[in-house]
């Protein structure tokens, strides 16, 4: 049997009475980038929330380094090495950049390494060092996304989950974010990426899953899905065909 870093088996997830995810199985191998694709409302965000413990699956299993996540709460999940950058970034906008980063290192696993983590964050994102005393809410959209990722990295995650990191950013920042994801991956951070920028996501992903109304309809390597006619027609569209 293979050793997956993260493995989800047959998960059913509900919001109240409404089922959002149906019998989903997926895995993420150590050191890879895995993309989770699909239209709005397909259940991508729900899956990330299920992994980080905000919602609990009604049925099925989630294993991280062979440890079951199904009953852990978010504050416990981050402490075993899964950081979640939620959709819309969810920074503490009234707090300074530095305070946001301090809270990123709140889990016990990260607290003693704070100085070293801060140094790494500032070397990855020099602009944040220049803004250290500024309120997070005063940053530009791109800077806020960098801060959200930097904050998640402060916890020293083995798995970094990014929910729509390029949403609402200018094309230059979108490119920066994708390059950053590759850089982080080269530094041994495993990435689970939810993206609507499907073409770019598939280009960097080792493995990808396509979700449709809460079910996985397709999976394969990034290149396989990139070449898939159905994907091209449904999600990528004409303008990307020849890039």
């Amino acid at each position: 049997m293979e050793n997956h870093l993260l493995e989800m088996k047959g998960a059913d997830v509900f919001y109240g009475d409404a089922q959002a995810v149906w019998d989903v199985s997926l895995y993420v191998d150590e050191g890879t980038i895995v993309a989770l694709l699909g239209a709005n409302g397909a259940g991508k965000t729900t899956l990330l929330k299920t992994i980080s413990g905000i919602i609990h699956p009604k049925k099925g299993e989630i294993l991280f380094s062979k440890r079951s996540l199904a009953h852990l709460r978010p504050q416990e999940v981050v402490d075993i090495g899964i950081s979640h950058v939620p959709e819309g970034r969810r920074l503490f906008s009234q707090l300074t950049v530095l305070d946001n980063l301090r809270l990123g290192a709140y889990p016990p696993r990260a607290r003693s390494r704070f100085a070293q983590s801060l140094e790494r964050a500032y070397s990855l994102f020099p602009v944040l060092e220049a803004r250290t005393g500024q309120k997070a809410g005063s940053l530009s959209g791109g800077e806020q996304q960098m801060l959200a990722i930097a904050r998640a990295l402060m916890a020293h995650p083995d798995l970094l989950m990014l929910d729509e990191p390029s949403l609402g950013l200018s094309p230059i920042f979108v490119r920066t974010i994708f390059e950053l994801i590759k850089t982080l991956n080269n530094q041994k951070v495993t990435i689970l990426l939810v993206e609507q920028n499907i073409h770019q996501a598939l280009k960097i992903a080792h493995q990808a899953y396509v979700l449709k109304t809460g079910k996985i309809t397709m999976n394969g390597s990034g290149d396989e899905l990139l070449a898939n006619q159905e994907i091209q027609k449904a999600y990528i569209g004409e303008r990307w065909r020849n890039t």
């Binding site: 939620p86 709140y106 916890a155």
Partner: peptide, 14 residues
């Protein structure tokens, strides 16, 4: 202060 602003995001910080 962080939890006062966004409790769910605060729990994601641990």
């Amino acid at each position: 202060r962080a939890a006062s602003e966004d409790m769910e995001s605060a729990t994601l910080m641990g």
